[in-house]
């Protein structure tokens, strides 16, 4: 059960976007998957206040196999961004060797940070294909699950089901699956083409 957490140890994640994108829910789902369904520990905090209203929104999740002491994230291992502003603000904080996950149609990267792994997903467009743009956050969660491979996908999926109202469950699970499939395909493609991955890393 704890394969992901024991493998990765303490993992610090920041998720950023703008109000209405469901940043906090995405963080809740990831935290819940780790703390409740994976049997590990998770601490989620979010920024409150005027800066969290309408404009930008961000959440921090720390995952670990051991109890978590310090609750805040200074330099995330994984940064998930769904807005240009969040990218600009948080990308300098990403740890060397960290993972950057972007909503690729909302975040334009002129000069990519070096020494990191980078994955992009058109989450808004994928959500729109399902008929509801609002589930872009869960598409992001699915994609996150596939490309990081640190949490059992079933647990993550269960956390999605557990975090949304019953009437919204089906749609959100579809969103999760869609994001996950997109990510899994990308990872498989990269694995099949080692050269491509190296190229990708160089480009980053």
């Amino acid at each position: 059960m704890q394969r992901g957490l024991t493998k990765l140890g303490l993992t610090e994640i920041r998720i950023g976007g703008f109000g209405g994108q469901g940043v906090i829910l995405a963080a809740v789902v990831i935290g819940k998957a780790a703390a409740i369904f994976e049997g590990g520990y998770a601490t989620m905090t979010q920024s409150f206040g005027p800066e969290a209203r309408g404009g930008s929104s961000s959440a921090q999740v720390i995952l670990s196999g051991d109890p978590i002491l310090y609750p805040y994230v200074a330099n995330p291992d994984i940064l998930v961004v769904m807005s240009q502003e969040a990218y600009t603000r948080f990308s300098p904080q990403l740890k060397p060797g960290g993972i950057l996950i972007t909503e690729q149609e909302l975040v334009r990267i002129d000069q990519a940070p070096t020494g990191i792994r980078m994955y992009g997903v058109p989450a808004t467009r994928l959500a729109e294909e399902l008929g509801r743009k609002v589930v872009l956050n869960i598409v992001m969660v699915g994609f996150f699950g596939a490309v990081t491979n640190m949490l059992n996908p079933d647990n993550l999926r269960q956390a999605v089901a557990d975090s949304v109202p019953p009437a919204m469950q089906k749609l959100n699970l579809q969103a999760f699956d869609k994001g996950f499939a997109y990510g899994a395909e990308m990872i498989q493609g990269l694995a099949e083409d080692k050269d491509a991955e190296q190229l990708f890393a160089l480009e980053s």
Partner: peptide, 10 residues
């Protein structure tokens, strides 16, 4: 405190 009040855990 605000930190404990707004921190989400199991």
């Amino acid at each position: 405190d605000e930190c404990v009040g707004h921190m989400t855990e199991k």
